[in-house]
Design a protein around this nucleic acid. Sequence first.
DNA 1: CGTGCAGTTGAGCAAATTCAACGCTTGTGG
DNA 2: CCACAAGCGTTGAATTTGCTCAACTGCACG
Lengths: 230, 230
Amino acid sequence: MYNVLSSVSVERPDFILASRKGPDGHSSPRRIESIGGTVMYTRDVEIFGESEPADYFCKVVSGAVRTYTVLADGRRQVCAFYLRGDFFGLEANETRTSSADSIVDSKLLVIKRSVAMTLAQTDEEIARQIWTIWDKELQISRAHGSLLTKNAKERVAAFLLEMADRFSGTDQVELPMSRRDIADYLGVTIETISRMLADLEGHGAISLAGWRRVLLRNRRVLGQLCLREA
Amino acid sequence: MYNVLSSVSVERPDFILASRKGPDGHSSPRRIESIGGTVMYTRDVEIFGESEPADYFCKVVSGAVRTYTVLADGRRQVCAFYLRGDFFGLEANETRTSSADSIVDSKLLVIKRSVAMTLAQTDEEIARQIWTIWDKELQISRAHGSLLTKNAKERVAAFLLEMADRFSGTDQVELPMSRRDIADYLGVTIETISRMLADLEGHGAISLAGWRRVLLRNRRVLGQLCLREA
DNA sequence: CGTGCAGTTGAGCAAATTCAACGCTTGTGG
DNA sequence: CCACAAGCGTTGAATTTGCTCAACTGCACG
């Protein structure tokens, strides 16, 4: 158990509905980001838990978040990582199907679902954005499924490429998550992650600097390793 | 290559928009099914292919459908099976991210996406139904991902239970798909499928009659095998 | 300077794949 | 009607892959 007060600080306690109106008094198409308030989380803090009411969703302003489910045998299945700019926690049902944690200190934009949904009924732009968020979730889920059909080395290679693309855009990747997180995401053990990283480094595909910093030396080799890519 | 004319027959060639109006002249909430036409497919016929325009989606009236992607190394990843009553092929993007095949002779209800989307803007009931279809897709994808973290026996057991639930509601299951389809869905080889089925039968959990017919003898044993269920 | 945590490395083992052979069913052509 | 080939499924043996368990390293923190 953690102390909520010590780990979470609300910048704008209410979900303020600042309506942007043009000079003619009509409300202009508004970005969905304008209807929420930001909240800070320290690292390793639960943002929401499975089977709680799903009455809000979030955008990662800074930091990183993981969503996961705990399986009956105690294993943890990490569903997805969400980084700067990503939305997460939007569900159709009333209750959550996964839990969410902050991986590092994170600033989140929190958006009430009911507010967004109500706005979406009249504001086509908002509706389109929600649609996009939804579709992205499906894409992430499918990509993850595709990952889980690969062998261990391919999974790790694909993971590094995914992180590089979504994170930095460069070949220098600073992984915010632990080996355990990666293992639970890729569906292998931490030992296997370790071995595969060492193996990739041995073949000159990457360089490891410290525990979290990875340099992609040879994207072509990595890419060919995940030849099994869709 | 197959002959389209020999394998597909259109019952209602146009996407008829039969508007249902109440006595007061207002159009009443309409079911999404009323805005499409039915098409027949013989078995093993492509319904749509990856990267084609995604301008329609379907409901399975009878028969069975698989969606899949072909990976770079030639392996086929079956994304999902769709049975009587299921919707499939609804995408947010303009192009398909997967292909779809009929598994057996199938009758499909085909719904134009643009028509459904336009209606959804004014008809809240239609919008809600599209929402539901979307969410179901995400659920299916997540369940599939969860499946891929299990071991072989658990995958097969979970698959049989899933099929029994979605198919018959009884313990008597008639699988419409081949071992290859199941293998490509579960991410294991056909030999493993065969062995696991034999194993389950040996332990009295199921009975096999012919290649396609499975009787679930002991759901509790099967359920405990997929203890790793979410 | 110990303690604890995160990660790495190695040896043995279990699980699933690969490769190969075989059985059953179906469809085809003589 | 029979022979035979092709397709689908099953079974067995050898091999590979990744896991388990255990020891060990490096680092942070008291």
